[in-house]
Design a protein around this nucleic acid. Structure first.
Lengths: 128, 128
DNA sequence: TCCTAATTGATAATCATTATCGATAATATA
DNA sequence: TATATTATCGATAATGATTATCAATTAGGA
């Protein structure tokens, strides 16, 4: 039986107010700032559990720390190669035909991630 | 200046012979089995460096250890949710229209990953 | 109110990966 | 070919995010 705890409400509330696909660590920092008694393990646990339940989204970005999103409707993400900033990519109209699945496999989830440069980093050189 | 070392040749040779998108750890185990004097740090270093150079591919699978692929031509991957096995997804004919990129951003790389069940796991229950 | 088990907080453990650094060796140059 | 330069290597410590552990707490039902 799932229990409705203050900790879950606080994590979900604060995540909803955070815009930029925060890392688990960033969510913990924000929640801990507002409710100093909460534990890091609790925040990590709630984020993982709630993403499995579908109440929030675990962002699919390879080779990055865990990030979460209060938006759970289908959309993709783009991350700046330079500063790591993450933005939403809206799904366009029309069908998607990306590939051929191997025989015998079933598809339950598909993730698409992009990498590039954001507006702010476009004019800067890599060494800066 | 890039140097042509025996360690690089051995890592690339053995990766080419490994079929199933091995993890860095698995590549190290294979290379170390054939050449016991090679260091783990060297294998990890070569895998990362060569993937940046484009001589091999770092597989885009969120929330997984680093995996590498000797195939560098465009294709995607699918991982079995249950056993973790990874297989190739060939890109179908026709154009791909998956989304709208935010204003000001540029796209340098796109990764698509699938999750589901492989043929062998399809008939088994989760608890096994 | 009382029971029971889900949940929490504190902290240790895990584990993949990276950093460090003296030693080695590939390549350039004389 | 001999020597110099410096990229690379091997060994190992450090890092850092995440998870496991477990006694204490508490939500929700009886």
């Amino acid at each position: 039986m799932q229990r409705n705890t203050a900790q879950k409400r606080r994590v979900l509330d604060i995540l909803t107010q955070m815009a930029n696909h925060p890392s688990a660590e960033a969510v913990y920092a924000a929640v801990h700032g507002a409710y100093p008694s909460i534990s890091k393990a609790t925040v990590y646990r709630i984020l993982k559990d709630e993403s499995v339940c579908g109440n929030l989204l675990a962002v699919d970005i390879p080779r990055d720390v865990n990030r979460y999103d209060h938006r759970t409707d289908p959309h993709w993400h783009i991350r700046c190669r330079r500063c790591g900033k993450v933005a939403d990519v809206e799904i366009g109209a029309g069908s998607i035909n990306v590939g051929t699945i191997p025989d015998g496999w079933s598809v339950e989830r598909m993730g698409i991630s992009f990498e590039g440069l954001c507006r702010e980093c476009a004019g800067l050189t890599d060494g800066e």
